[in-house]
């Protein structure tokens, strides 16, 4: 073969270098209570800002055998200096996953751990009718993968919303299924009743029947507000998450411009972006957007 003057781009490597992918569940925290070990697993063994799939496993401290657990609750709490406590979108009553013999849920951490703002997990579980409650401080790292970015905002209905990207972790040029979680904070109606933490004070729901309108564009001035065709707005499926299609025409920086509509079609946040091609001018973003990079 003739050697080429200039090397061809290694396309697979080109994408891989920009994206940190999380594929393996590893233990991110371990709590011991009585005879039991509670293992909390996250992808890559680390909690990141944004959407985190979480698994909880309870084992016998001595033998390491899996325990028959009937239910698990999961509540992340952020404690700030001055005693202010908040939470983030999460699945409080975790789902049982029989094949993995664990309980699964998620947490959408809104902030990284830092001095003056720390996260704790409050977990309770029931074995043989006996309720156990534990809590443990954890570390939440900054998100390294921009494709799992999130945004929080107040909608026109004065409710607090959070949108977090779930997938793809590693987009490719071409068609990508885009998955996002959309969550609303439920303002508590009454003061706390039980001991801290009272879950009714920290309730987030997966909003249902909403639509997330999508307009992906490249913000770089030289790209002149470039966009892609055949994108599909995000709508909800049975697992509560929102699914759509985004087409990336090339690698680089992209902005996902959104408009969030509630089940009645009312716009809660987001503005239409110009569709004209404007070379040399940075693309105008919607008031609701998430930047990605791959």
């Amino acid at each position: 073969m003739v050697a080429c003057t200039k090397d061809k781009t290694d396309y697979e490597a080109e994408i891989a270098t920009e994206v940190t992918e999380y594929v393996e569940f590893e233990e991110a925290a371990r709590i011991t209570v009585g005879d039991y070990d509670i293992g909390v697993e996250a992808l890559n063994g680390t909690f990141y800002v944004g959407y985190n799939e979480v698994r909880v496993k309870v084992t016998d401290k001595q033998t390491g055998a899996d325990m028959q657990v009937s239910s698990v609750t999961f509540l992340p709490i952020r404690k700030e200096e001055g005693g202010n406590t908040t939470s983030c979108p999460h699945r409080y009553d975790m789902n049982i996953s029989t094949d993995e013999n664990c309980f699964s849920g998620y947490a959408v951490f809104t902030d990284a751990s830092r001095p003056g703002g720390n996260w704790e997990l409050y977990i309770s579980f029931t074995i043989d009718g006996q309720l156990y409650s534990v809590h443990q401080a954890i570390t939440v790292e900054e998100q390294l993968n921009m494709n799992l970015n999130m945004t929080s905002f107040t909608g026109k209905d004065d409710e607090q919303y959070i949108i977090a990207l779930v997938s793809p972790q590693r987009p490719k040029v071409g068609e990508n299924e885009l998955v996002a979680g959309i969550y609303r904070f439920e303002q508590p109606n009454s003061p706390p009743t039980s001991d801290f933490p009272d879950p009714s004070q920290f309730t987030y729901t997966e909003v249902s029947g909403y639509t997330l309108l999508l307009d992906p564009r490249m913000p770089e001035p030289s790209m002149g507000n470039h966009s892609s065709p055949n994108n599909v707005d995000l709508t909800q499926r049975d697992d509560g998450l929102y699914y759509g299609v985004v087409n990336y025409t090339m690698t680089g920086n992209w902005t996902l411009n959104f408009i969030l509509q509630n089940e009645e079609g009312r716009i809660l946040r987001g503005t239409e972006v110009p569709t004209v091609f404007t070379p040399g001018i940075e693309g105008v973003k919607s008031e609701l957007y998430i930047d990605v990079l791959f």
Partner: peptide, 20 residues
């Protein structure tokens, strides 16, 4: 037949943009 496009943003520290 192979042809590539690599575009470089004004801010060269940013990621290049690539397509075939």
């Amino acid at each position: 037949s192979i042809a590539e496009m690599t575009m470089y943003p004004q801010n060269r520290s940013k990621k290049t943009m690539f397509a075939y």
